[in-house]
């Protein structure tokens, strides 16, 4: 295995083109366990962390641009980002321990395409887009279009994610992410729920809800969104959203949770995450519900 550390996107594309089968990585927090499991990772690994654009976080007037290789620890330490997108930040902050946080990136978390990836439901709920580079230039797609199955993405050979764009919330809009694991830290989600909603005078005027670890890929739940839009988030609306979330699941049985458990908890987390997001939207600047 050969290690490459290109300084520019063009250089990285050059290696990908000249050495077919090489793969890109940022934190290697998924790559190393995969190597130990005997997975063939090809002839070389390209370290993206030395490319400036992939390691930058910038706030523009209308959106945040987060480099694909930025370690999660930099996101949780960014007060402005946490203020605008607390759900995305808390999802990033849940990817492993401090040791892992020094390495793990949104790009890696999304492109590893684990159904349980914490950042994905939060990014989808926040409407995030991925900017993808290849020899043909760049293209931009919604994050939910990236994973297509466990371990598989829609990226073509030679493509990699450069950065994520996330619109800054306007008005009384906020997001939240909750996940359930059997322990307190350092585990893979049994269920994850991302919510972003907008409130107007006590009424929910728009919502995006996404679930992780309950299907081969992240699940948007339009029925749960419809159940709360136009309501004051009363008990009946929350119960309907909860039921819709449970119904949207297509999970598996494994050692972390059964199908019935995942369906049930998807409903519970959806209900609780809506509560947190609504609270944040109506009381900007509070960090209620943040685990960090």
């Amino acid at each position: 295995m050969k290690y490459y550390a290109p300084a520019t996107i063009e250089e990285a594309i050059g290696v990908l083109t000249s050495e077919p089968g090489t793969r890109v990585f940022a934190g290697a927090t998924d790559v190393v366990p995969q190597m130990r499991s005997g997975r063939d990772l090809g002839p070389g690994l390209i370290d993206l962390k030395k490319i400036e654009r992939l390691s930058a976080v910038t706030r523009q007037d209308d959106m945040w641009v987060i480099g694909a290789a930025v370690p999660a620890a930099q996101l949780t330490a960014n007060a402005d980002l946490s203020h605008d997108l607390p759900g995305v930040v808390e999802a990033a902050g849940l990817i492993g321990s401090d040791q892992v946080q020094s390495r793990s990136s949104l790009g890696g978390n999304v492109c590893n395409a684990s159904p349980a990836a914490d950042s994905v439901p939060a990014l989808v709920a926040a409407g995030a887009r991925a900017v993808i580079a290849s020899g043909d230039g760049t293209r931009t797609i919604l994050v939910e279009e990236l994973p297509v199955g466990p371990g598989r993405t829609s990226l073509a050979p030679g493509e990699f994610v450069v950065e994520f764009e996330i619109d800054r919330p306007a008005g009384a809009t906020a997001d939240a992410y909750l996940r359930l694991i059997p322990r307190t830290e350092m585990d893979i989600a049994v269920v994850g729920a991302g919510v972003q909603l907008t409130m107007d005078g006590g009424t929910c005027t728009s919502a995006r809800i996404a679930l992780g670890a309950v299907a081969p890929t992240v699940v948007r739940v339009p029925d749960a969104e419809a159940a709360i839009v136009g309501t004051t988030l009363d008990d009946a609306a929350l119960a309907a959203a909860s039921a819709a979330a449970s119904a949207a699941c297509n999970p598996i049985d494994d050692k972390r949770g059964t199908i019935a458990y995942r369906q049930h908890v998807a409903g519970v987390l959806t209900k609780r995450a809506i509560g947190i997001a609504a609270d944040r939207a109506q009381n900007p600047g509070t960090a209620n519900g943040s685990t960090h």
Binding site: R36, D47, S97, R103
Partner: peptide, 27 residues
């Protein structure tokens, strides 16, 4: 563990806490 799950291999690299089992030596 060798998989970043136990922290026994922790080192400080450029000021940040790292599991050295998850870092490739050339890095």
């Amino acid at each position: 563990c060798g998989t970043g799950d136990c922290g026994a291999c922790s080192v400080i690299m450029n000021g940040a806490l790292n599991a050295s089992c998850l870092v490739f030596a050339p890095e």
